[in-house]
Simulated assay, not measured.
Amino acid sequence: MDLRAALTAHRLVAIVRGDDPDAALRTVLTLADEGIELIEVSLTGKSALTVLERARQALGPDQPLGVGTVLNAADARAARGAGADFAVTPALGGGVGAAIEAGMPVLAGVLTPTEIVAARGLGAAALKIFPAAQVGGPAYLKALRGPFPNEPFVPVGGVDEATAHAYLTAGATAVGVGSPLVGDAADGGSISALRARARSFRAVAEEFTP
């Protein structure tokens, strides 16, 4: 897949992690049903690869599904085997190159200008600023865009509706959203509340959709 184009088109990556695999699967399917096009299943969730496999079977080949918290080559190979279209890493490491070799574009975790340069050298498709909220939020993104005006930045970490809007206004290609969107749904919480949050976040993203 063309991850950069997908991020530009949809502006939002939903991050699903939970301790209840059935609830996590329901969460993924609900997000897809609400029109959230880019969904990442984090390997830190229970039975994450099984959740991904089941989601792939239910949604078919056209729904972009990613695997997050890819740390090494074994994670990358397992993600690809489970049907992932793209990989997301929290930092630079062996998982970046291995995922690319396996045919998956990578949203690579970076924080500093040095890491941005390194990630691009490794072939990352897009750059995950993480943890975004702890390093200055939208102001930090704006500062990075000075020397890196054309890089596809995706802030992740503490992104609620208001900060999602602020990041996108500041030039983020997309935002990655976990608990402010998913809430407790992946642990068995309310699906109706998840639907409401999904619609709110999607409305923010659609303000910036080309």
Rank of each mutant, 00 (worst) to 15 (best):
T89Q: 08
G146E: 03
I116R: 08
S42W: 03
P210G: 12
R54E: 14
V135I: 15
V51Y: 02
V110K: 08
V110D: 11
P149W: 13
S200M: 06
A99K: 15
G94D: 10
P155A: 15
A108D: 07
F208A: 10
N72G: 10
L43V: 12
V28T: 10
K46L: 14
N72F: 07
V88R: 03
M1Q: 03
E53T: 12
V13G: 09
A78N: 15
G137N: 10
G123T: 14
L12K: 09
G189P: 01
R54V: 09
M1F: 14
A186G: 06
E161W: 03
P152E: 01
L31Y: 00
R17E: 06
T50Q: 15
G60S: 14
E115Q: 14
V13M: 05
I116E: 02
D22C: 00
A82Y: 12
G66A: 02
L144P: 04
P61L: 13
G18Q: 03
G171S: 11
A125M: 12
P149I: 12
D75G: 10
E207C: 01
P61Y: 02
A48K: 09
R77V: 04
P90W: 06
F86L: 04
V159I: 15
L52N: 00
A78K: 11
E34R: 06
A87R: 08
P105S: 10
R77Y: 06
T27P: 00
A102T: 08
E40R: 01
R145T: 06
V117W: 07
E161V: 12
V70D: 05
A48S: 13
E37R: 15
G93N: 07
D2H: 11
S200R: 15
I191M: 00
T69A: 10
V67W: 01
E161A: 10
A185N: 03
T27K: 00
R56V: 14
P138S: 14
A186M: 02
V182S: 00
P138I: 10
V51L: 08
T169D: 08
G60D: 04
G188T: 05
T173A: 15
G68L: 02
A132T: 07
D187C: 09
P147W: 15
H165R: 11
P113G: 09
A58N: 01
A9Y: 07
P149C: 10
A91Y: 13
F148E: 09
A205D: 05
Q134W: 05
A166G: 00
T112H: 03
L65H: 02
L49M: 13
T8P: 00
E37M: 11
E53R: 14
V51C: 02
A108I: 15
G158M: 09
R56F: 04
G123S: 06
A32N: 06
D33C: 00
K46P: 03
